[in-house]
Design a protein around this nucleic acid. Structure first.
Length: 419
DNA sequence: TCTGGGGTCCTAGGACCC
DNA sequence: TCTGGGGTCCTAGGACCC
């Protein structure tokens, strides 16, 4: 059996865990740069604040409805996520971290008459008690069905108490007839539109289609999903998925038309990618740089480009990655465009201490100790005290984060004092 | 004035090989 | 008049997820 454990309104719940004043009140969390709404408490949903709402358009709405609006606080959410994960691992060792707020768990070799419903309730109870984060737990014989069970637990908290198990053919059929096709995991906007044209309104309708038809009209993803929904375990638990790429992309506070500002941003993003690489002990073979204009400004000239560079040896040195990334940015930069967003992506990842050496070119051996020193100094003194010379040393650039909560669990100065 | 960021997987088509 | 067949690798783009 598989469980899907999903944290309810995760970011909003994290904020509430440390600020009890927010309990029972409408709360909304904003994206980077305080752009748009990316997480809402049930109360905020109830008064009608939509997901993705650009906050500048909804400011007065939030005020009249008493919605508490906060900037996103990723150090806090990341830390809370790993706490939830470690509690879940007490219930079964086989856990797949699916996203920051969701994990799959598998119960292998459990007895046939095992009380999964009770176990689900215990998981929920312990996570709530130890972290303050409410969750919903769905349990079923396949991953796709556990997703459906999870939606049922979430939708009917009173009846289910937050946990629901699909463990019979009747329950499976009932659940599939209940869930709308567009709410099925893996069926997005495009596919649900096409399926609805075929008269497919629920997950049940989808499972009634012929395998051949699905194979012909869609990809193998949908075929696998269909089997999983039919109760035939097809999607497997993926416990240690290796990351395939690492990205740092950001919108700017203003638009830039000059290459100098963009070079600075690219250098910073490249350093961030390199740091993430070193943190997970990887190196990259490929660096991709993207630039784009403001897609919301329909009247100004649009330019969205990216280019990639293949390196002759894998690296995680900030210096090398930043240099190539800046070169790449200069090669695609177009004069006269107002750029609003840029990014650096590294891919072609290999383990740092186990890759094929190149016969002719390899990384300057001085870089590794230099990066080690930079990382340890930044870890010790924080706030990126050590940067590359082509980064923004004056700190003129900043992300808008006007309503940021304290880093309750990751900064010693922000820990709550109990009086 | 102001509209996010980070991922995965699959497919079709082109370029190339023998 | 008539012009094969079987592969691999790479990339761009599309679809999806949270």
């Amino acid at each position: 059996m598989f469980a899907l454990v999903d944290c309810n309104n995760f970011y909003a719940s994290c904020e509430r865990a440390f600020n009890p004043d927010l309990q029972g009140k409408p709360v909304a969390i904003l994206s980077n740069n305080d752009g748009c709404v990316i997480s809402r408490s049930d109360e905020a949903k109830a008064v009608g604040l939509p997901m993705g709402a650009p906050i500048f358009k909804w400011e007065s709405f939030c005020k009249t409805n008493g919605i508490h609006v906060l900037s996103s606080n990723y150090p806090l959410y990341g830390d809370m996520s790993s706490r939830v994960m470690s509690i879940l691992k007490q219930f079964t060792p086989d856990v797949e971290l699916y996203s920051i707020d969701e994990s799959f768990a598998e119960f292998r070799d459990f007895k046939d008459d095992f009380d999964y419903n009770d176990y689900g309730l215990q998981i929920r109870k312990r996570i709530l008690k130890w972290t303050g984060i409410p969750t919903s737990v769905g349990i079923a014989p396949t991953k796709a069905l556990s997703k459906v069970a999870n939606k049922i637990a979430r939708k009917f908290p009173k009846e289910t108490k937050g946990a629901y198990v699909i463990d019979s053919e009747e329950k499976r059929t009932k659940a599939l007839k209940w869930i709308k096709i567009e709410d099925v995991w893996g069926i997005g906007r495009r596919l649900s539109k096409r399926l609805k044209q075929k008269g497919c309104k629920t997950a049940y309708d989808f499972t009634q289609l012929s395998n051949d038809w699905v194979k012909q009209n869609f990809s193998v993803i949908e075929s696998r999903l269909k089997r999983d929904l039919e109760g035939i375990p097809t999607l497997v638990l993926d416990e240690h998925r290796d990351r395939k790429m690492i990205a740092t992309t950001r919108s700017f506070e203003y638009t830039y038309s000059d290459i100098d500002n963009i070079k600075e941003r690219i250098s910073t993003f490249a350093s961030s990618c390199a740091e993430k690489l070193r943190k997970q002990n990887s190196s990259c073979y490929v660096v991709i740089v993207t630039l784009s204009s403001d897609r919301h400004k329909k009247d100004s000239e649009q330019h969205r480009v990216s280019t990639s560079i293949n390196l002759s040896y894998p690296t995680n040195s900030s210096l090398i990655i930043a240099n190539y990334a800046i070169g790449a940015a200069m090669s695609i930069f177009k004069e006269g465009i107002k750029y609003k967003r840029a990014g650096v992506i590294v891919t072609g990842l290999v383990p740092t201490d186990n890759y094929q050496l190149n016969m002719f070119h390899n990384e300057d051996p001085k870089h590794k100790p230099l990066m080690d020193s930079i990382d340890s100094l930044n870890a010790k003194y924080g706030d990126y005290k050590i940067k590359l010379g082509n980064q923004d040393l004056e700190r003129t650039w900043k992300m808008r984060q006007e309503r940021l909560s304290p880093r309750y669990t990751t900064n010693i100065n922000d820990i709550i004092v109990v009086r």
